[in-house]
Amino acid sequence: MAALPLARPRWPVPIAPETDVSRGSCFMATLESQSKYPAPPRRAAPRPGWRRLAAGAAVPLSLLAGLAAWEAIVRLNQLPAFMLPGPVVVWRRLLEVLAGGWLLWHAGITLGEILGGLALGVAGATLVGYGVSKSPALDHVLTPYIVASQAVPIVAIAPLLVLWFGVGLRSKVLICALIVFFPVLINTVVGLRSVEPDLRDMLRTLRATRRQTFAKLEVPAALPVWLGGLRVGATLAVIGAVVGEFVGADRGLGFLINFGRGQYDTALVLVASGALVAIALALYGLVAACERVLLAWRA
């Protein structure tokens, strides 16, 4: 992958925002935003009818095939349900816990932790990132801490945070925030540094105030890269919440997974994991939708 031309070597290359969800490629960064030439059309050209139909059916078909293979493996090996329950068993379990209301209750708890941590982490990272990009002194002072904090694995500090802040919501929000912080910070800094100096000078000749420069230049110019950080942060936040709940919690999807494992209720483990995946996908989709609206000018 080509490095962002404007990224300073101090910081690792960010996850570029130019990722095309509609084609299912998540991490293939392109630099088309940096070019003033028209981007190639985003949507694929209309295909002949049957081919479009095949493309539309591909995902459900592959899902179906996967489920069939799963069921076949379970049946052929005569696996007991605590080792690997078949899809039908898992489906029944899902309906049960849904009917009991507690899947949604636990999912709500976890979602709250994720959203709280995401808000805190994104807000903090954006503020610090703005400061770091504006002040070389701050950059110097903070960089070692930021990099060090990132080098410590989250599973190693999570128990400490639970010890200090209790088994409740607070420690989970903090763990989420911590894990979200880094990618958003990097992308904030790189985004702000990618603002063209000539555009800054242009605003100076127009006597723009600091606030105007921020609102009319820095925000829109940094937004694409910043949103790329948010997209990564959103999925990481899900992991953060589960790690926190694994360490110590009496509620939430991570707790449910732990609980299911203790009971040899593997179906429950799979149901709760599926719920986590659903949350992650929803968050990712939400950020992608934001990008489509906010960055419509690039289409």
Partner: peptide
């Protein structure tokens, strides 16, 4: 001592905001 509204500047490249 500082830029003025009464002095307009055109840069070598157009310097437009691509989102506008």
């Amino acid at each position: 001592l500082e830029p003025r509204h009464r002095i307009g500047f055109v840069f070598q490249k157009a310097n437009l905001m691509p989102w506008r």
